[in-house]
Design a protein around this nucleic acid. Structure first.
Length: 520
RNA sequence: CGGGGCGUGGCGCAGCCUGGUAGCGCACACGCUUGGGGUGCGUGUGGUCGCCGGUUCAAAUCCGGCCGCCCCGACCA
């Protein structure tokens, strides 16, 4: 963080210099200082330096902090509360599909990883290995799970004997470790939190259906609850999970024009069942390997929320997951006005709390209302309630919504029926965040039939956006795109009508369109 | 691992060239003031200047070595 923040500061100092450039020489230094001082209060504008903006709001909104171990982050209470809120809701939705929660160990015998060829090839380079314990070298090293397919399937082999044991649907919430070369808070950290579902089914068709069911669970959850718009589809062979027959993905487009994989669901075939010798007797008394799936989303979703909704003013949190949905800022001028205002504010808080709104009364002393407005906006609170002497006299409150800044987003509401007003407003803000993000994604998604234009777009500033193109499906064309533009295949939408076209790259017949973008 | 840069209170930086009392902004604490969009003023807390060694009467500053971090590249289920 040190250096990254430093970069941000330097960028802003540069801007201050530019502003002071026209001033007379004698006052230049002074101007520089003043510009710097005002800048100090603001976050780096999102449009000026997206990466610096991202790091800054995580720090200033107190979502996370860096740990002494490279690539690991500490979730601070406000950041963890977002995770808890989304975890609780997703957990409900997962259980509704029939999966049950369990917990498998952090440590896995190293040899397990080697049982599935593609799986080991995919994960070996980024696995942390424990070689010592109890003061001596271990007979067999343990790996710290990068994902739990191996240990879970080892157990499945002991639990599954009959078609009556199927389907077996297990989910676990846990931490995993992957030794990544480059890390970014939430988006790619050495250790991260996630849920991983693992299922085993009697038939291929049933497992394939399960993978798609979970894709839809994720899509609905992320779009409705996190207000993050998505494109969905299956992955190309190159982007597939190691050991999977098919990988499905939900993908979103961030504010800087880069795509983010928000969750995946895999149809694993019987690859792991064979590797771990999971067999069951079917109704014909025949020994069979079950067909399997796995699916997961991680704390990366916090990064998606931040980058999808945040603006120049800071964080913007969808009401569904916001730790604080509404904040009440009391306002008064003369001392004798204080108590009536505070009394009204407390009453409003109690009313809202009673209605299930996550609300806080900001009665901190010595801070101006203006400061508090900016502070809570920076922290992403969706609704602000202002109560001053004028409001108390009129039995009103001013409601300000985070999706529309300034006077435009303010409206007066009666203190009677405040809870209903606020609840409706929260629903509206939630919807508004989704609509705004969806429109931004659409505006940044383009169709291309000319490879040169596609290339120019991907090379341009702003991350390139999402490209919707015909692709023949060959690895050669995919590789060429990646090497020449750094864009990768994000998803191939399902259920395409079959209207054929010409491959963007080679011009040969193409049966499907695919989304390509530069990704996190 | 290759190229570039940086290590000075919690954060951001100046001071180093030309050795001699460690400084500024923010944050923090206290007081007054202010309060419908980042109030203002005052007082104060906090630093063995990354580490080790050398030169010197004297090292943040000069010299040597080491360590760490960041950026670009390689890599990224």
């Amino acid at each position: 963080m040190k250096g990254k923040a430093g970069g941000a500061r330097r960028a802003r100092s540069g801007r201050a210099d530019a502003l002071a450039g026209g001033a007379v020489y004698s006052s230049r230094l002074e101007n520089h200082r003043m510009a710097d001082k005002q800048d100090e209060k603001k976050v780096t504008a999102r449009s000026v330096d997206f990466a610096a903006w991202y790091n800054e709001i995580i720090a200033r909104a107190e979502l996370a902090d860096h740990s002494p171990v490279r690539g690991c982050i500490v979730f601070r209470p406000d950041g963890f509360a977002i995770w808890e809120a989304l975890r609780d809701e997703l957990d409900r939705r997962i259980k509704k599909t029939g999966a049950r929660n369990a917990y498998f160990p952090l440590f896995i015998p190293q040899s397990f990883l080697h049982k599935e060829a593609q799986h080991v090839e995919g994960f070996a380079p980024e696995v942390a290995v424990v070689t010592h314990g109890g003061g001596k070298e271990l007979e067999e090293p343990l790996i710290v799970r990068p994902t739990s397919e191996t240990i879970i399937n080892y157990m499945f082999a002991q639990w599954i004997h009959s078609h009556r044991d199927l389907p077996l649907m297990i989910n676990q919430w846990c931490n995993v470790v992957r030794w990544e070369m480059r890390t970014r808070p939430f988006l790619r950290t050495t250790e991260f939190l996630w849920q991983e579902g693992h299922t085993a089914h009697a038939t291929k068709a049933e497992a394939e259906r399960e993978a798609l069911t979970m894709l839809e669970v994720y899509r609905a959850f992320v779009e409705d609850y996190l207000a993050v718009p998505l494109v969905t589809g299956r992955k190309s062979a190159a982007e597939r999970f190691p050991g999977a027959e098919e990988t499905y993905s939900i993908e979103s487009l961030m504010g800087d024009g880069r795509a983010l994989q928000c969750g995946t669901s895999h149809y694993l075939g019987d690859n792991f069942a064979r590797a771990f010798e999971i067999r069951f007797l079917d109704t014909q008394n025949q020994l069979q390997h079950p067909h399997q799936t796995s699916w997961g989303v991680s704390t990366r979703l916090l990064g998606a929320i931040i980058m999808s909704h945040g603006d120049d003013q800071g964080l913007r949190l969808p009401p569904a997951v916001a730790p604080l949905q509404a904040v009440i800022v009391p306002i008064w001028r003369k001392a004798e006005e204080g108590e009536p205002v505070l009394a009204a504010a407390r009453a409003a808080r109690d009313t809202l709390e009673g209605a299930g709104v996550r609300v806080r009364l900001d009665d901190r002393e010595g801070l101006t209302p203006g400061f508090k407005f900016n502070d809570w906006e920076m922290r992403g609170v969706p609704v602000r309630i202002e109560i001053g002497p004028r409001d108390v006299a009129a039995r009103n409150a001013v409601l300000a919504r985070r999706d529309r800044l300034g006077r435009e987003g303010k409206a007066t509401a009666s203190l009677d029926g405040l809870a209903a007003h606020v609840s409706a407003l929260l629903d509206d803000v939630q919807q508004s965040f989704y609509t705004q993000a969806r429109d931004a994604m659409r505006a940044n998604t383009r169709q291309f039939d000319d490879y040169a234009k596609f290339r120019a777009q991907m090379e341009g500033e702003g991350g390139g956006g999402m490209a919707d193109v015909y692709w023949c499906g060959s690895a050669a064309c995919e590789t060429r795109i990646r090497e020449e533009t750094r864009a990768t295949c994000r998803a191939i939408p399902l259920g395409q009508s079959g209207a054929a076209g010409r491959c963007l790259v080679c011009g040969e017949a193409a049966q499907e369109r695919a989304f390509f973008a530069k990704a996190y």
